Amino acid sequence: MSTKMTGPVEAYFEGRNARDLARALSGFSETAVVHDESRTHRGRAEISAWMQNTIEAYDDHSRLLGVEADGADLIATAEVSGNFPGSPITLRYRFVTDGGMISSLEIAP
């Protein structure tokens, strides 16, 4: 498994960890969808609010463990630590891109 990333996926992880939400959000399309914790967030405004809310609630940070392609999707695996039961946990992030932008992100154990 490689850990080399570029573009919007790299901006997402680096931005979240640095608490630079503009950078974290920069790779998402205007109509992107995020699925996390059994909730769906549609569009950049909802995704931005989701990022802010989860950072405030969990003070989470991700350590990238690996990245692999699954067809056209990119699967990133990261150890996530923060203020939540069971920390740290390993999560899988499935990124779908379209035109160089993230169109969908699904986060699951």
Rank of each mutant, 00 (worst) to 15 (best):
E10S: 06
D98I: 05
M5T: 11
G27P: 08
R23L: 14
G71T: 08
L105W: 06
T54N: 02
D20F: 02
G100V: 04
V9C: 06
V34Y: 10
G27W: 09
A72V: 11
T54E: 01
G27L: 00
R42P: 00
R44V: 09
V80P: 01
V33E: 02
S103L: 08
Q52P: 00
H61F: 13
A45E: 10
P8R: 12
G43T: 06
G82R: 12
G100L: 09
E68R: 10
P88S: 04
M5K: 10
R23F: 01
N83D: 13
I75S: 01
T40M: 02
G99P: 11
V9W: 05
L65P: 11
R44T: 07
L91W: 15
V67N: 07
P8S: 11
A32N: 11
G100N: 14
D70C: 13
S103Q: 13
T77P: 08
G7C: 14
L65I: 08
Y12P: 01
I47H: 00
V9L: 13
F28E: 06
D60G: 15
N17Q: 03
R16M: 10
L25E: 03
D59N: 06
L25W: 06
R94N: 13
V96I: 15
N17P: 04
A57R: 13
D20S: 12
G66M: 10
T3F: 12
S104G: 02
E14N: 08
R23D: 01
D98Y: 09
A32F: 06
A69T: 06
F84G: 07
V9D: 06
L74Q: 02
A32V: 10
A78S: 02
E79S: 03
G86P: 03
H41R: 11
A69D: 12
P109L: 09
T31Q: 07
R39A: 02
Y12K: 02
E56W: 05
P109F: 07
G15Q: 01
V80I: 15
L25D: 03
G71E: 15
A78L: 01
M101T: 11
S87D: 14
D60K: 14
R92L: 04
D20T: 09
V34W: 08
A72E: 15
Y58M: 05
A32S: 10
A57D: 01
A72G: 14
W50F: 03
G66F: 00
G82L: 05
T54F: 03
I55V: 07
S38H: 09
N53R: 10
R44W: 03
N53W: 04
R19C: 12
L64Q: 11
A76G: 10
V67M: 13
R44G: 00
R44F: 00
A24H: 02
S104Y: 04
T40Y: 06
I89N: 04
Y93Q: 06
I55N: 11
A32Y: 00
E46H: 04
T90Y: 14
S103R: 11
A45F: 09
K4Y: 04
S104M: 08
F28R: 07
E106M: 01
E56Y: 12
E30A: 15
S81Q: 14
A49C: 07
M101E: 12
R19N: 14
V96D: 12
T40C: 14
S38P: 00
A72Q: 12
E10N: 11
D73I: 09
L65C: 06
G7M: 05
A18G: 10
V67R: 07
R16V: 13
F13V: 02
